[in-house]
Design a protein around this nucleic acid. Structure first.
Lengths: 210, 210
DNA sequence: CAACTATGCAAACGATCGGTCGTTAATGTA
DNA sequence: TACATTAACGACCGATCGTTTGCATAGTTG
């Protein structure tokens, strides 16, 4: 029972396939990715997928979950090392930019691609993607509110407004840096948020100067 | 000659097809759009397209051009009614937001969808899209520089930096407002740019208060 | 007028799409 | 040993993809 080699092997196959799926989907999209190409990329057969998932949509939903966990571990996690407040808020932004700069995913960002792909078509995938996005924005907003509670940001800061701005400046890095040769999008996204936060911060020495 | 009945009819067919193509591509993407569905949506036949274009890529390139003209006429054009300087810069941002709010395209923004779709795959379409995007950013940047030259923005403003921020705050409206129910993305994008400009403007009375 | 050109469609092409079916091999349980 | 379950595969399905071919027709040109 506990030592079922079959289930273990299946679980590892699933993980390997999902990792590839997320990686490929960051480039071609979750729907643009075809089962045939995914099979070729993982060295398995198309029909073998149906031993693990009922159909393409099920695989897509699992891929969203996999990408969410990756974002949680590689973006949100590291930022927790910074002390709560404005420093953690900025660390979160920098962590995202590092995720992009390191080229963890060949397409830059799974969620950016998938959001643009699904923002107009109804369905379970869209709903789940929207939920993950809302979670992320609310998490950023909570960091803002915590910074305000700690008096590290001005008391009249609109948390929803500020978190929208931070997310916008971070999201667009993907397309700017990939589409425009020699774009300094990463530098600009970092500086924009940094200066914005310093202007709102009673003690700017909490943040780097530049 | 210039008013050849055949060419006139063909030209009108092309325009009608391209308008539909841009509209549909704002939802499903330029590559996600299939010739079969485009034919059904325009009431023509798939094979009829090859009387006007050599293949799908040619049609895609023409669609990009059509969308560029639409953006020029419906976004850039109206902003020219505002006096040059910081007011025209803000009018440009508001004009874009109005384009989104009016729902001119069912997917919100052709270029947002297409940029996300092509930012990772090489080819003629990607190159042209990148060129149009660069043109747009440089146009915004020129408005910033003009405002500085008119002393309507502080002299030490980094034009490239500021135009990146304005574009980012505008772009993300598309996905935020469509994916998150009840999102105030339009309001936030407007306020973010307005307050940023007012803070940099020696005479804030040039701009609305809120 | 005849010759030519642009427009447009129906039918069909090979390729690929997501998905089904039946089977085999491996691993478990009784 | 006998049986059940899971993983994985090859072959194949109907649908759709972008594209080609052949043909009919309307408009232009000599």
């Amino acid at each position: 029972m506990t030592h079922d080699g079959r289930r273990l092997r299946g679980s590892r196959s699933r993980e390997a396939i999902l990792e590839r799926a997320v990686s490929l989907a960051s480039v071609e999209g979750l729907d643009g990715l075809s089962l045939g190409r995914l099979a070729a990329a993982t060295g398995t057969s198309k029909s073998g997928f149906f031993a693990h998932w009922n159909g393409k949509e099920q695989l897509q939903l699992d891929a969203v979950e996999w990408a969410r966990r990756q974002w949680s571990e590689q973006v949100v996690g590291p930022a927790l090392r910074a002390p709560a407040g404005v420093r953690r808020l900025f660390a979160l932004h920098e962590s995202r930019l590092r995720f992009y700069a390191d080229g963890v995913l060949p397409g830059g960002c799974f969620f950016f691609t998938v959001q643009a792909e699904f923002d107009d078509r109804p369905g379970a995938v869209r709903d789940r993607v929207a939920e993950v996005m809302r979670e992320w924005l609310e998490y950023v907003q909570r960091q803002v509110e915590q910074a305000v509670a700690l008096s590290e940001l001005a008391a009249d800061v609109d948390a929803a407004q500020l978190s929208y701005e931070i997310d916008a400046l971070g999201q667009v890095v993907v397309v700017h840096s990939r589409l425009l040769a020699g774009s300094d999008a990463l530098v600009r996204a970092r500086r924009a948020v940094l200066q914005r936060l310093r202007a709102l911060c009673p003690d700017p020495s909490l943040l780097p100067e530049d």
